[in-house]
């Protein structure tokens, strides 16, 4: 629906939070993509002789305790955050949405099962469970993706079911039924398109949460492993150097805060733009 998209974009230009959040998010994604092609220095390049250097023309943000270029590490760290968050939210969407849609379409014991499973997973604080899962499967980027992904499943399952139930009550569903369409087809053709906007908004917010979770796990040493840099790990390593080189903690800290803030603003803006009820109010 290009009409709708154009309309949304047009209104988006007038939404300050959406613009700001979108700009930060785009910048973050650009840096992550750029790091695939180019970084000022290789992040695995350890040169003890130039460790803990202050920002200079050669090293814009200075070097860390191994003489690695801080800017390059932040760039690659952004990429690692994106990959972890993208895949983790993808897992949540790929498993959570069909489960929720199934629950809404079938009702009965299927719904009970899906919802009780969601409640069960939800009962554990997400980061704590992620710690448990990585402790069990072993630390590493892949396992932290799985851990964060698992806790995205119930979020999307619940949201999809709740939103889909509303859609199932609508007249056009009744019409589709009368036309002889079966549940799966109705879900694909009518229900999912109508809940998509809610899911997109939620996915943006989950993306921000996943980045935070990845940073948290890496900070604890359970996420991305060396020699790959990660914002959380950089914070951890900077901890005992707080007095000698505070910038080692400040820059990754800022990167995390800015990215999460940007994604949240972006998500909030999207919700304002996509939510039909808000649209009507305006």
């Amino acid at each position: 629906m290009p009409e709708g998209l154009r309309e949304i974009l047009a209104r988006g230009l007038g939404h300050r939070g959406f613009l700001l959040g979108g700009a930060v998010t785009l910048g973050f994604l650009f840096v992550a993509l750029l790091s695939l092609l180019w970084t000022p220095y290789a992040v695995t390049e350890i040169d003890i002789a130039i460790r803990l250097q202050a920002p200079s023309a050669a090293h814009w943000l200075g070097t860390d305790h191994f003489g690695r270029d801080l800017l390059s590490m932040l760039m690659v760290g952004a990429r690692n955050s994106v990959v972890v968050a993208l895949v983790a939210v993808g897992i949540g969407l790929a498993i959570g949405v069909p489960l929720g849609a199934l629950a809404a379409a079938r009702r009965g014991w299927v719904e009970e099962l899906v919802m009780r499973f969601s409640d069960f997973t939800f009962a554990f604080p997400a980061l704590l469970s992620a710690v448990m899962i990585t402790a069990w499967l072993g630390p590493g980027a892949v396992n932290s993706i799985i851990a964060i992904g698992i806790f995205n499943i119930p979020v999307f399952a619940r949201l999809t079911r709740g939103s889909a139930l509303v859609v199932w009550q609508r007249e056009f569903i009744l019409a589709a039924r009368a036309a002889g369409k079966h549940g799966a087809r109705i879900t694909l053709e009518h229900v999912l398109p109508n809940v998509a906007s809610v899911l997109i908004v939620q996915a943006t917010i989950q993306f921000a949460l996943a980045i935070l979770a990845e940073a948290g796990l890496s900070y604890l040493g359970l996420g991305t492993q060396p020699p790959q840099p990660s914002w959380g790990k950089m914070l951890n390593e900077a901890q005992t150097l707080m007095f000698q080189a505070p910038r080692l903690a400040i820059f990754p800290g800022l990167a995390i805060a800015l990215t999460v803030l940007g994604l949240n603003l972006f998500g909030d803006g999207l919700r304002d733009l996509l939510d039909p009820r808000l649209r009507r109010v305006r």
């Binding site: 695995t44 390049e45 350890i46 003890i48 305790h65 191994f66 060396p226 020699p227």
Partner: peptide, 10 residues
């Protein structure tokens, strides 16, 4: 932990 990163690079 730190020595390991340096040695891995070497």
């Amino acid at each position: 932990r730190r020595g390991g990163e340096i040695i891995a690079a070497q």
